[in-house]
Amino acid sequence: MNALEYFNARLEATISPMDYLKLASSEPDKYFLIDVRNGPDHVKTLTIKDAHIIPQQELQDRLNEIPKDKEIIVYCWDVWCNTAAKVASFLLERGYKVKELTGGIAAWKEMNFPVSDLTKNNNISDSCKC
């Protein structure tokens, strides 16, 4: 693979936070954003606004929640996390159109883009009642 093929493949497989925000704002019904992060709820209190939360470990059992007629955007923690890439591959094998959000939620938060605080929506329980 030469450099041009590499960069074209990368652009086909990923979407930047800026591009996603712009495209989803102009065509909100075209995209289905999924937070695929694994891990305990207390470390996942923030999610990208309007994201569907389907952790990678639950994906197999929740495929019926993911529409085939939309472009699926998946994200995980950061550039060092490959969970979103694993999910993208899994979904592509099943006929979905998928891209990975580059930089994950870390890049999204760094840019001060809209997030949802799940603790305020009572979607996360405080089991220690701290």
Rank of each mutant, 00 (worst) to 15 (best):
A51T: 11
Q60N: 14
I73L: 04
L21K: 13
R62H: 15
I66D: 03
M1P: 08
K109H: 03
N122I: 02
I34D: 00
E12Y: 08
S89A: 10
A107T: 04
A9F: 08
I124D: 00
D50Q: 14
T45G: 00
R37M: 04
D78F: 07
K99E: 03
N8L: 14
L59Q: 11
A85G: 09
W77P: 02
K68H: 10
V87I: 06
I54V: 12
L23Y: 01
D126C: 09
M111D: 08
A107D: 13
K70G: 03
D117F: 02
K120L: 15
S125H: 11
I53S: 02
T119N: 12
P28H: 00
P67F: 02
H42W: 14
E65T: 02
L11S: 11
E100V: 15
M111E: 11
A24W: 01
H52R: 08
L23W: 00
I105F: 01
R10V: 09
K109T: 07
P55G: 08
I53Y: 02
K22E: 08
I72Q: 01
C128L: 14
P67N: 06
V43R: 14
L59C: 09
N2V: 13
V87E: 04
I105A: 04
M1V: 13
P67V: 07
N123A: 08
P55Y: 07
N82E: 13
K97A: 11
S25Y: 01
L21A: 12
F32T: 04
N121S: 15
A106F: 13
F7A: 06
F32D: 04
A3L: 15
I34N: 02
V43K: 13
L101K: 02
L23S: 02
D35H: 08
D69A: 02
N123G: 05
F32I: 01
S26W: 00
A107R: 07
W108G: 03
N64Y: 14
T45D: 00
L101R: 04
V79K: 13
L59H: 13
N38T: 08
D61H: 11
M111F: 12
D69N: 15
S116Y: 06
K120N: 09
N64A: 13
Y6F: 15
I73A: 00
E71T: 05
E93M: 09
G103P: 05
H52W: 08
S116Q: 12
L46G: 07
R37P: 11
C128V: 12
R10L: 13
N121G: 13
T119I: 12
A88Y: 04
F32V: 03
K49H: 08
S26F: 00
K30F: 00
Y31T: 00
D29L: 03
G95E: 02
S125Y: 09
Y20H: 12
N121M: 14
A106K: 13
S16F: 01
C76G: 09
K97C: 09
D35A: 06
T102G: 05
E65R: 14
F32N: 03
Q57V: 11
